[in-house]
Design a protein around this nucleic acid. Structure first.
Ligand SMILES: [Mn+2]
Ligand SMILES: [Mn+2]
Ligand SMILES: [Zn+2]
Ligand SMILES: [Zn+2]
Lengths: 141, 141
DNA sequence: TATTAATTTGTAACAATTACAAATTTGAAA
DNA sequence: TTTCAAATTTGTAATTGTTACAAATTAATA
């Protein structure tokens, strides 16, 4: 995903039924630029210098809003941290339990046939794997 | 999975390097019998009548221990509840957002080829889908 | 400009989890 | 058995992530 201008972000939010505001644009911009699956805290800390009155509640509210309007997805890998991702395309996540990095990987669960679920309505698909990344494996001397 | 006797549970725990104790056996028995992916609270509430001194901390500790020794897996679907599953075989979870039921489905992510992850060490695999179950779809008149 | 609606903010409340030290239980060793 | 140390459990307090909510601010509309 290429960097979006402020106007492109405003249009993108609007296309998804979300009115633009400075916090919303900045949060979306951060999410779109930093494809590291940041937590609420990371986003809040990164933006609070520039948006000096930003409230953590606003970050929570805005991310909820983004998820509801399919501008972002919530990424759950650990029971104590919710991460967020502006990439709403179908893909999986690999988290390295050594360096905590969350990698993307190509995998589309929605295109897999799952006979057991016949008859149910499937809304959102999630795939994640935990392990140790190549880099960390090599660093163990 | 068929119901296990207390002795079978003791052996099973032992085989996984976990010493048996009354709370451990009871918690495992509950998990193994109730394949509903219960939360800590559900387990605690279900057992506290019989184990009148049971502490919630013990339930947390014991479930952590079970997960560490691969006697159970943690099932994360919502950001505000950790569920547990004595079925450690590879399978996916479908949660109905109407009735909150968590269904199992046959799917083995570990047997899927994921070229993007070449070189990383993959430890545990998780697949879940949210939607509305057949039953709930039919109940909408 | 005046009025209303939407958004943001700050604080307090809440819920899930963890830390920790005391109490209890277990299980060898004497 | 009794003794003693280790393991386990317990209860409480602390911590963390999140949500509720009302006041303040900002934006939109008349
Ligand atoms: Mn991603
Ligand atoms: Mn299951
Ligand atoms: Zn790593
Ligand atoms: Zn249902």
């Amino acid at each position: 995903m290429t960097k979006m201008s402020v106007d492109e972000i405003k249009k993108h939010l609007g296309d998804h039924g979300v009115k633009a505001s400075l916090p919303r644009v900045k949060i979306y911009e951060y999410l779109n630029t930093h494809r590291t699956h940041p937590t609420v805290d990371e986003i809040f800390n990164a933006l609070s210098d520039e948006l000096i009155t930003l409230s953590k509640t606003t970050v929570y509210n805005t991310l909820d809003l983004f998820v509801k309007h399919h501008l972002a997805v919530q990424v759950l890998i650990e029971d104590n941290e919710a991460r967020y991702d502006a990439d709403t395309s179908h893909h999986g996540h690999f988290k390295c339990t050594k360096c905590q990095t969350v990698y993307d990987f190509d995998f589309d669960l929605s295109s897999t046939s799952i006979p057991t679920l016949e008859g149910h309505r499937l809304d959102d698909y999630h795939t994640y794997i935990r392990g140790v990344c190549k880099k960390c494996l090599e660093n163990i001397h």
